[in-house]
Design a protein around this nucleic acid. Sequence first.
DNA 1: TGATCATGCAGAAACGTGCCTGCGAAGTGG
DNA 2: CCACTTCGCAGGCACGTTTCTGCATGATCA
Lengths: 365, 365
Amino acid sequence: MSRTDTTRRGSRQSGRAGIRDVAAAAGVSITTVSDALNGKGRLPDATRRHVREVAERLGYRPSAAARTLRTGKSGLIGLTVTTYGDEPFTFTEFAYFAEMARAATSAALARGYALVILPATSQHDVWSNVALDGTVVVDPSDHDPVVTELVRQGLPVVSDGRPAGTLPVTAWVDNDHEAAVLDLLDHMAEAGARRIGLLTGTTTDTYTRLSTTAYLRWCERVGQDPVYESYPAHDPCAGAVAADRLLARPDRPDAVYGLFDPNGTDLLAAARRYGLRVPEDLLLVCCSESTVYAATEPPITTLSLKPRRIGTAVVQLLIDAIEGVAPEGPVERVIPTELIVRTSSQRRPPRTTVSPPRSPASDRP
Amino acid sequence: MSRTDTTRRGSRQSGRAGIRDVAAAAGVSITTVSDALNGKGRLPDATRRHVREVAERLGYRPSAAARTLRTGKSGLIGLTVTTYGDEPFTFTEFAYFAEMARAATSAALARGYALVILPATSQHDVWSNVALDGTVVVDPSDHDPVVTELVRQGLPVVSDGRPAGTLPVTAWVDNDHEAAVLDLLDHMAEAGARRIGLLTGTTTDTYTRLSTTAYLRWCERVGQDPVYESYPAHDPCAGAVAADRLLARPDRPDAVYGLFDPNGTDLLAAARRYGLRVPEDLLLVCCSESTVYAATEPPITTLSLKPRRIGTAVVQLLIDAIEGVAPEGPVERVIPTELIVRTSSQRRPPRTTVSPPRSPASDRP
DNA sequence: TGATCATGCAGAAACGTGCCTGCGAAGTGG
DNA sequence: CCACTTCGCAGGCACGTTTCTGCATGATCA
């Protein structure tokens, strides 16, 4: 009677073996199978081994959907990238995102979670079609609708980038952008820069805003007139144009810091166009994670935001919150930046000649 | 009676609104809500609008887990990267993977699917914890255990890279590696190469094998003795050493093709060490998607495998198979490669002088 | 010897949907 | 006026787990 009930519709209906099939094959109940496989309940080792063996023989894999429905945990976390403008999907366009996403994926897997990459501007379809335990949001805008929707659903949200305003994130991770910019400007000034220009963005995200105000504060402190050009960061052509404008100004700077990844090559090209030598006539620093700048002529000093450490920290905090390990109240974590000094920001480099046969050691540090 | 039954345990038990809450609030049955929201059944527009409005007001989002359990479709597809050796997660180490993953993610989202990146060597935990509708496998090895397990579960599997042996994949996408190598060797021979060397790998994956045999065939055809060095592709240091060995040989080649991404810089460094000028004394080509090689001294000719097109094609085929749009039998799709010719493989370049003020046009084509 | 208790397991209720079945009411043709 | 179709919607089962509750059985103890 009970046997016919458990095998109600035949054991091979859906092709895959279910927990009922295992129970029938092992001659035990569904409960016993579940307990044996999950290490719960009070079962003698003999039964446990027997059930495990039968499950193995049948190639049983528990249904992730059913488990998620029952337990409320899916083991999936989302990684949201806020796409600029109408661009379809600019992820990995910048090396920062690629590095950060890689570290986040690794960190998630190490703790038994899988990571799903979702653009913020995606059709709502995809968002509600995947069961998430929590989400990492990259650079959320003020009053971000995605974030508010997620917290309304009761999901923990950790942001890469200090949230603007009163955005109710569970935790956030960021660099100290202001300190980084101040430090970097000091570095250029020490290298002999008299008037430092800035290549910045027109967007209002936290990174752009903090970096720009830090620049303005620094200018005020040292008594220099600000010299900067802004452009929409998502448009690479606009970046090249802005770089050109900056060097075409009557009050042309003798050093420039570019906030975005492609600014280095753009500024280098513009400098060549105006016959400016780097670093003799123009000091150059840009914020980038790209390895390209180790191989340019000359190599360009970059500010690294340490995306790997950020990606790892963000995921750790998120999983802590999901599993309830997190302390009370919002958590903030600041990751130090690193200035990778290369030729472009040293007015008196070790070798100022354009030596063709460089030593191999200088290529692979 | 029926009302108390539907709201059995109170409507606010789990915090989120369920379909029952919507039904109760709208004064209709669960079936009607489901039909109204999914556009099924026969309902007058008035009821449909009313239900949609109530659902919107309550902020109702259907449970992805429940829907997956019911329908059997999760809207998730996996992207497996076969990690080399014990390396934790070499994904995006090579630009090829990064580009391919990005294109795959985009293509999946465009069709309403989300993409999960999973390493093949991960603990089985993660694999069975996420409900996948199908999987993309990158460069599966012969008799790949992951692939066989997946097809045993009845999931469609599409591979990037022609499967070796009788691996039962649903479809595959690949370049014509043999044709690409033959074409590329011809190109170098036309540029004046007399003896072309090869930097290859010790692994037995399809890409390495096909490329190497194509090289050997070409050598036989033109009557040249093969000159090659092999090394484990996952070890960057080994690559540098192998490049050095190749140029240190008594029968030193006057042209080299490197199969892997970092080979270009490695060979360039080795050439400098031996005082060889590129391209005057040594022609250089390597297979890479990295933009670094546009900016090296000199710029290096690369073979692009078009990872974006591959990533897109792979996902399209997979989703076709999932949705049953696919034709009978295995599908094969060959993506053409592209040889990006730069200075390193042209013995008589347009400008052979090291002109300092290059024209801006040459930087941004 | 009867009461108490740990042990080993089975029953069954959820979890939140989708969809098949079916039932009353309203319209329609003879 | 009756059979018959169509419309509009409700009931209820099933998806495959986890887990709470509970029931025998043998062991232990007063």
